[in-house]
Amino acid sequence: MNAFIQSAGFLTSVQDLGRAGFRQSGVSIGGALDAHAMRVANALVGNEDNAAGLEATLGKLRLRFEDQRVVAWCGGAFTVRIGAADLPPGHAGLITKGEELIMTAPNAGSRAWLAISGGIDVPLVLGSRSTDLRGNFGGHEGRTLRDGDTLQLGDPAISPARMAEMFGDRKIAEWTASSAWVTTAQRDRFLRILRGPDWTRFTPAAQTALVGEPFTVTLDSDRMGARLDGSNLERVNASDLLSEAVAPGTLQVPPNGKPILLLGDCQTIGGYPKIGHVITVDLPIAAQLWAGDLVRFHEVSLAEAQQLLREREDDFARFRVGLSLQRS
């Protein structure tokens, strides 16, 4: 059964949790820029964590479904409706045959992740259904969606009869995920960072500026990285570095002194010095950044960052158990 893209919006692509295992060949991890949001949305509709969904940038998305499905979304401050009913973030909604799902432009933030029960059944390419927009492979024909596209959906784990029973006479389920997971557009954008491998290559003034001053996201930002404007982050000396691994979250600084916060589609290796690294649990906030946004950095310890990540994973495991009890 299919989903029909009536309006593809500004930039919508099929994404799962990314293409791990091919960095040695130069293939980016890619996937949903907020992988946690994709996982939570998938859990809400009864999918495996890694099922493929949609990443919508700036919304304006309209979809119609050929059969009954459960949908859920997480991300920026969008309004999503199923017909006339409002579907808040982090809630499962029942969508019946022929009904329309509409996502407006956001009031804050920039991206949203939509999960559909059964997932989007595009072919696995190098082990993933994600669209690699630079390499033009994976996802739906290796490209962003266009008006009029048809997406094939997988078979939902929950039968239509059970689905209807679960929802009763409501369209929107009452159970929900933690608001911090489902609403990630922040007014005051604080990103916690660790010192990067090249921290000491920067002047004390640059180190102070990074954690003391705000930076503005510039227009030439994309899924590879958010380019930031602010104080020039100067280096102690300009010696050339050999390229080495970088990762989503890396704050690298080209010779112009303006940091780039790397996101999911970033290159696998880079030669610019790495002054810092945004911690994994704050990548969802980074994934909402858009041109004009102000962002500040705050330093934490590696032990704290890893503790926060372990706690989130424990919470997510409990959330999964809670959902399955809800449905049994």
């Binding site: 050999l242 080495e244 691994a245 890893q306 503790q307």
Partner: peptide
């Protein structure tokens, strides 16, 4: 999860929640 060699280095990617340290106080 992944190993990425480049020139003089190897990038090692891992999931801190899945690193099995015997001592729970030890950071992954």
């Amino acid at each position: 999860t992944e190993l990425a060699p480049a020139y003089t280095t190897i990038g090692v990617f891992y999931d801190p929640a899945r690193i099995e340290s015997a001592d729970s106080d030890q950071a992954p």
